[in-house]
Design a protein around this nucleic acid. Sequence first.
DNA 1: CTAACAGTTGAACAGTTGTTCAACTATCAA
DNA 2: TTGATAGTTGAACAACTGTTCAACTGTTAG
Lengths: 123, 123
Amino acid sequence: MQQSFMPEIAVCDCESIHEDVVAAVRTQLPEEDLMIDMAEAFRIFGDSTRVRILFALKAHEMCVCDISVLLGMTKSAVSHQLRILKQVNLVKYRKVGRVVYYSLADEHVKTIFSACMDHVMED
Amino acid sequence: MQQSFMPEIAVCDCESIHEDVVAAVRTQLPEEDLMIDMAEAFRIFGDSTRVRILFALKAHEMCVCDISVLLGMTKSAVSHQLRILKQVNLVKYRKVGRVVYYSLADEHVKTIFSACMDHVMED
DNA sequence: CTAACAGTTGAACAGTTGTTCAACTATCAA
DNA sequence: TTGATAGTTGAACAACTGTTCAACTGTTAG
């Protein structure tokens, strides 16, 4: 249906070898924003400290102090990572006096972890 | 079963408030290596260029030139990312003369993408 | 053979990221 | 009020990451 009269900027020094394939794939690609959001979501999980924190909270609600002892890190480092996880709504918290208890904000984390765990196991 | 007589290095300046919780969670945490591998796997997906390449290959086998035209990137940049995806066995390739055709190496990518897409949609 | 082209590679660069450190807020206890 | 403690925050730093550039390999066509 669609021809290749799209004026692609000359970013590639080769003549596109399969213009029909490129045109067809172009129509099947998801929205650019969706792909960027997906990468963004994966990026959050792409740090072992954050993964360890999430696994810890998956087991039990914990305060910053608990987590820092459990993972052998400073409270500051833990707090910085919790802020990131909070920003993307992966963890939630409740305050009791001076103590801040963190827990998983959504069950989706467990689903994603399971799917990825399968992938890691296979290799 | 296990008491808290593990000599944790003094990395935290607070007295662990919930030693019982920390001890219990410690027994439930996965192997350190597993969590590191999981983060590593997520890290690969945590870049929009790689996500876009994987979506493209999900639609159709393509050569480097096709991908670079489709995504508006240099062949070099695409090739560098393909190397990373190849290293972790997410894509495979076949050579025909000068042309190298890349395709998805495993169906698992689609599973993971679906799971993550659901998560992204929700927010 | 040579010229052209598909693709790869390594160095260099800018931009990003995670941890550390020090200073800070807020709450509790005396 | 004062001191101690739980936690947060911003700046600084080193380590890492993705893209660019230039040089390179290997294959095709003349």
